[in-house]
Each structure stands twice: as structure tokens, then as C-alpha cells.
Amino acid sequence: MSILEISNISLTYPAMDSPAVNNISLNIEKNEIHALVGESGCGKSTTIRMIAGLENPTSGEIKYNGQLLNRAGYSVPPEKRNIGMVFQDNSLFPHLTVKENILFGIKDKTQRTEEKSEYFLNLTGLNGLGERYPHEISGGQVQRVALSRALAPEPELILMDEPFNNLDIRIKMNMLEEVGKILNKTNTTCLLITHEKSEAFILADRITVMREGTLLQTAKPPELYKSPVDTYVAEFFGRANHIPVKLNNGMFETAMGMINVPSAFEKNTLSELGFLVHRPWDVKISKDGDFEIEIVNSYFFGDYQEVRFKPINSESDVQFKFFTHIGEYFAPGTKLRVSIPAERLTFCSS
């Protein structure tokens, strides 16, 4: 069941030529953690600010639990939506203690109790810090308070705007795990905004990729990694080889020779020109491999080694890469045969 239904919303800021958000539609399912990812300036922040009611879409509809929040000329103000939000800069009220911050959003005064604040302090591992001021606790703790504050009014949906940005990488890993558990425990649906693929991979049930105001793809993390809709999405979630191909008599013509169209592909959906996308780890070296290649160079990355290669006897600058474990050495100029399993290939028209 969808808790949030976004239908065809757009927003153009005054004095801007192109819309910041351009006719997007997205459903968030109940109890899922959904990540909206994209580069900075892609419109993802604008999108959740519209969901929170901090911006009004120029057109389109937003429904929350079946109830209309936005339609052209109609908007429920943010304070009436009961949607939680964690801000990028955490935005804790500096003049209030941790406890006062957590209880700030609870409207019913009788509910602003010691037990309530204790519960949330406990939940987020902040025991004993209730009387401190935000500047008296660490960055990770600030983030936990921000989460507690957003959860305290018990919203069904919580929006998180790049909440882990300012955290140190080790603290971040712990926080990601903990946030997942807390959201689960409190049965809270979450829409997380991030430009870090790792955050989305670790935390999200589903991921939506956004670029220049439009949505490119929504999928579960492994599916997104394996079958990106285009080379942008492929590159966003990891290193990839984009082999330019041309459809020729039912076969793909590539710089490395002809390849059979994998049987899993739906042939009538393929365009004449496009790319075969796959991950560098998919390249297998074997004596009876399909393609003959020549090593150009290799780079040491610590955990792995990146080997650059080109089609044999190729004059062009086009290079591809595969990864190997440390210890295997390939001198420049070495000639090898490699193959790429058909089930690892994805066709992208752009």
C-alpha cells in the first residue's frame, strides 16, 4: 500500500528558465525505506521540501495516506501535515536542550513527559544527554537528536535530507545501521535523500535515481546496480564499461567484434545504436574467451587492481577496464582473451 503518492508534480522557481522538478511521479510504500539519489542540484531537495510543504509545486498532486496535500492552488501547510523531517544541517534549536528539542514537536502538552523524552533518548542511544545543549554534544549525537526530534510526534513518514553528510565515515556506518533499526522498530516509512550511493545501498529497500529534475529509474538496489536504465545510472552506482554497439542483422557490432544478442533481451525494444553496459568484475579471462584484447596499463587501488585494455589492433583511444585481485600482474602490451557472460550485459540506448 502506498503511503505517499506523488503524481506529475513540477516546480519552477521564479527567475529560473527550466523547472527544478519536472513532472515527476513516485509512490512510497508503507514501511519502506526509499532513497532518492542524485547529484547536487538535481531537484531531490526541492522534491522533499514539496512533500514537507515547505515549497508548493506549480502543478501536480501529492497524497499522503490517501489525503490530498497539494494540488494547484491548494496546499496543506507544513505544520498540519505530520510528516517528520531531518535536515541536512540538523537544524537543532540551539537555545533548547536536547530534551526540549525532542519534545518540541509534540503538540499535546500532557504528552510532553519525562517518559517520552527518556524513551527517545533511549531509542537513539542518547541516555543521560537530555539536559545538554546541542553545541555540547558530538556530531553523531546531534544527528541522533535530530532523528529523535523528527520521530517524537510519531509521524508515519519521515523525510531525511542528506542527514549523514557531515559525519565522519566510521560514525556514518554505525549510524546507518542504527537508523535502519530504529525506523524498523518504530514502523516509520522513510524517504531518504542522498548523493552517496553507499548510504542508499545500505539503508534503502528501493532507490529512485533523479537527474535534472526528472526521475530515471526506481528499483531495488541489486537490480539497479545490475540493470541500470542508462549509462548515467550505471556510472552513478559504480564503475562500468559502456561498449558502444550497433544492431546489425540481429547481432551487435562492437569494436571487439560481433556479439550475439543475448536471448534474455527483448529484441523489439532495442534501438539501432546503444551501449552494452556491464561491471568491470564481470570480465573473465579465459583461453577460449570471445574477444582478444591488449593490456594498456594497470593501476593499483589497494583493495583491487584496475586493468585498462583495448580491443586488439585497435587504433582508437577507446579503453575498457576490468578489476583483478592484487597479485596478478599484467604488463602493458600483453594480449589476452576475455569473455563477458551474457547474463551480465544490459543494453542502454543512452
Binding site: L54, E79, L92, F93
Partner: peptide
């Protein structure tokens, strides 16, 4: 005063004169 402090207050259901006296003025 950062806009996000106001946003945070709005999202938590505090607006108008209450926002002025509870957040803006103390800050």
C-alpha cells in the same frame, strides 16, 4: 537565522507567533 531552523519548526507543527516567541526571539 538559517531558513532551515524555521523549516524545522514548521515541520514540527509550530508556526506564526508561536514560532516567533519559541524560536526566533530566543535565538
Amino acid at each position: 537565522q538559517a531558513g532551515s531552523i524555521h523549516d524545522a519548526s514548521l515541520v514540527l507543527g509550530v508556526s506564526g507567533t508561536k514560532l516567533f516567541f519559541k524560536v526566533s526571539l530566543p535565538l
